[in-house]
Design a binder for these strands. Sequence first.
DNA 1: ATCTGTGAAGCCGTTCACAGCG
DNA 2: CGCTGTGAACGGCTTCACAGAT
Lengths: 239, 239
Amino acid sequence: MTPRQNRNRDRAERGIPDATVARLPVYLRALHGLQERGTVTVSSEELAAAAGVNSAKLRKDLSHLGSYGTRGVGYEVEYLVYQISRELGLTQDWVVAIIGVGNLGRALAGYGGFASRGFRVAGLLDADEGIVGQEISGMVVEHIDRLEEVIAERGVSIAVLATPAAAAQTVCDRVVASGVTSVLNFAPVVLSVPDEVDVRKVDMSIELQILAFHEQRKAGGPLGEDPPGAAQYVETVEA
Amino acid sequence: MTPRQNRNRDRAERGIPDATVARLPVYLRALHGLQERGTVTVSSEELAAAAGVNSAKLRKDLSHLGSYGTRGVGYEVEYLVYQISRELGLTQDWVVAIIGVGNLGRALAGYGGFASRGFRVAGLLDADEGIVGQEISGMVVEHIDRLEEVIAERGVSIAVLATPAAAAQTVCDRVVASGVTSVLNFAPVVLSVPDEVDVRKVDMSIELQILAFHEQRKAGGPLGEDPPGAAQYVETVEA
DNA sequence: ATCTGTGAAGCCGTTCACAGCG
DNA sequence: CGCTGTGAACGGCTTCACAGAT
């Protein structure tokens, strides 16, 4: 009996740690790279290096999915791709709508990595009459008024928000009211949603600020200088 | 003696937890929102709600910066904005170069939240002759050949990579060789860099896959069906 | 009385080191 | 012998609950 015949019988009973789930897509990408180069089998050490983690973490992560490796040998690339894809739900199609078709929305609509792995963009919507009707990446931009119809008719299950900050919460409320329970938010706001809705945020400005913090520590070191403007907070104490 | 006069004397001696640093920009944004509405003082409960965290976490986070609140009252918005900004290094300017001016690079170049908080885009570079010379958001796109010059002459300290995946590592090597130690990577690859270089990654495809995982759990529940394609892994065992 | 600042406890994730299997 | 899978130790982050300040 080969390990394959165990299939998902001996898989962990629900509950893969969030930290692990967040890394599975990275492993998957590394595996696809190996696959393209024709690699058939890979050790935890090699795959971990390709994914930028250490091998103990990789093995622990994979152990949450099941026993898909062979001791003394490693993991079969194709098989592991399949197992991770299945665990992530990528063996089925996910229908995505992009709301907000400015520069960012356009970039997202044209992003190849989208369609390639089970994510199908089924709608581009915007509030701007000048943008509605334009063809972007082979799709015609529709008016935001049709949001609820589009979600219902096309079975959208993931909404990507690329609207201005001011519009994001309103649009979010509407997609949630239409039954969407997964939102990817590019607008620089904290969205409030019911518990059952998952929101993930992509925020370049936050990432830059985190980099600035570390950069400051490297460059400034024990400089200790007050930055310009600090004086205000000494002098205006009783103002 | 007011708390202000303590200034940074009693601040934590180096070492703010990473998890805290990652949230400071969120607090900062929430505070700016309050500031615009004219709020002078805010409690940990209110600010936490605006930032989407619980109040104990907020207070613990802020306690790593110093004692900037007033017991029985709360935090003074303007003062806290200043302290967090200073901690993050936003009271100084950071010079940014955007490398790769496709759809995404364009979106980034036009992003307002960039310039507004101490990040100055000092260069747009691309390898495509058709793009070089174009004016984007008031800047002329330069050829990637000039990368090293641009970094050195303009004092670039943060590189934003918006290139195709295949080019990212090469470009990264070049910016690192030019002395850049902070990289914000939008390309879907794991970059390898020396230890002293900080890399942060923004990857929509990964975020979507994480959403898909959770969405699958909600919808599929204890469905247990094998997805299409699964049969292959039973039938081809000895193939 | 109110709300901050913080020890202490608990939880989660990472790393170690080796048992177990091929 | 080689490499996976995993219990156990460790370290960091979150949460609790209350002492302390105004």
